[in-house]
């Protein structure tokens, strides 16, 4: 049902183009040509985030942090096996997706751990990536508060995810 959504939405736009006598080709080109400068402007931010993620992983800091934080996360009902996913998700979407398939192979796709991992993956966002990209060219560099709030909210959703997967 959801797969119809985008095409139907586009059709509505095209019909409106005809009704409103907008030049669809020119307008599309006008919009699309902004994409390259736009991607160029976010590139350095992406590089810095990816470098951090790589170093974080390869230095062993992430597994160290996983070990230290596991007992704390356990208190909130997050299983030890999922600590790493909770930690990686705010930094890297592709990294956590790779981790997700690792978890599937290890525990079986329909196990509690795997279902839990899916919900955690699906319900939280890559907070640091969004912070880097959204504030491209912005003057406000004071992002501490918004980032902390988002991380707390994401953590709550992880706790909730582990709980709801037990119930459902």
């Amino acid at each position: 049902m959801f797969s119809y959504f985008i095409p139907v939405f586009f059709i509505i736009i095209f019909i409106f183009c005809i009704i409103k006598k907008v030049k669809p080709y020119d307008s599309f080109i006008n919009g699309a040509k902004q994409s390259i400068p736009f991607a160029v402007s976010i590139f350095p931010y992406l590089v810095s985030i990816f470098i951090l993620t790589e170093l974080f992983e390869i230095s062993g800091l992430s597994s160290l942090l996983t070990r230290v934080l596991s007992p704390v996360f356990n208190l909130f009902g997050i299983p030890t096996e999922l600590t790493k996913l909770v930690l990686i998700k705010p930094f890297s979407g592709s990294g956590s997706l790779a981790l997700l398939s690792e978890i599937f192979t290890k525990f079986g796709v329909d196990s509690y751990i795997s279902r839990c991992a899916c919900v955690i993956y699906g319900s939280s966002e890559t907070v640091f990536y969004i912070a880097a990209v959204y504030f491209t060219g912005a003057k406000t560099k004071n992002l501490t508060k918004p980032i902390i709030i988002s991380l707390i909210a994401s953590f709550c959703s992880c706790v909730f995810a582990c709980f709801i997967c037990k119930v459902l």
């Binding site: 409106f16 080109i29 699309a32 902004q34 994409s35 736009f38 991607a39 590139f43 990816f50 592709s94």
Partner: peptide
């Protein structure tokens, strides 16, 4: 990061075009 940026160029081109409409 470069890989992702290249993918994003394409995604943004489509969506920014549609958004202009």
């Amino acid at each position: 990061a470069l890989d992702l940026t290249l993918k994003l160029v394409v995604i943004y081109a489509v969506w920014m075009g549609m958004t202009e409409l």
